[in-house]
Amino acid sequence: MSGIVIKNLNVWFDGAEERVNAVKNTNLKIVQGESFGLVGESGSGKSTILRALTGLIPTWSGEMNVTGERLGRHRTRQFYKKVQMVFQDPYAALHPRHSVDQLLSETLRLHGFSNVDRRIEKLLDNVGLGPTFRFRYPHQLSGGQRQRVAIARALAPEPEILLLDEPTSALDVSVQAEILNLLDDLRRAHKLTYLMVSHDLAVVGHMCKRIAVMQMGEIVEIMTIEQMRDLNPQHPYSRHLLESSLGYKRQKEQVPQKP
């Protein structure tokens, strides 16, 4: 069964003078239960695809299907029960005046759950936070803890698909690994489908089975993770991206000799 199918997707932003085409003629198919990565440099339109999927950007054309349902202009609450998103910056994604408890209980109530108290405890437990974190405010949490809270919020409606918008790029390296392992465990435990955006090939390599490389709003290549590990991409841009992610390669220097 197909999780997400995108056909001929165009997304644009209407600027003051001209329209900016952020995503052009994109086709994508993500199987249910799969973990799929979208990579590319900043501004290549990766996050824009996620935002168009969730309905945060209204200016798009083409066709988007999620679990067999075609998406229209407006997203229903039913849709948000299936698809949730984790944002890039955990410092911006939590309301500064709402405690963890307020945040999660509001989310749970919006989705019509009863026994909110028990569910909050369970959610916090799922993301590796103890009950002591329940009444903390965001400013009392570290970046990694905030991202865990944000993940708990995304898990609250018990979604099938999780959209991850560079979930670790704002965190330092040791915390990154923790969050990635947590996401991996959660995917297995809850049979989730991941669509993950990143510019970090190592992160995507850790998490995903297939990746799509984007450049200037277009998908230039879709490859499996093995192809990536074998350094065997077809498209020159993918190769360039891969090489630059390997770090600075010391070239045999040819020191110009002074005559």
Binding site: L56, Y80, L110
Partner: peptide, 12 residues
Amino acid sequence: SDYISAVKLQGA
């Protein structure tokens, strides 16, 4: 801001 987007994604 992201936290308003986030609550929109809960159907608020």
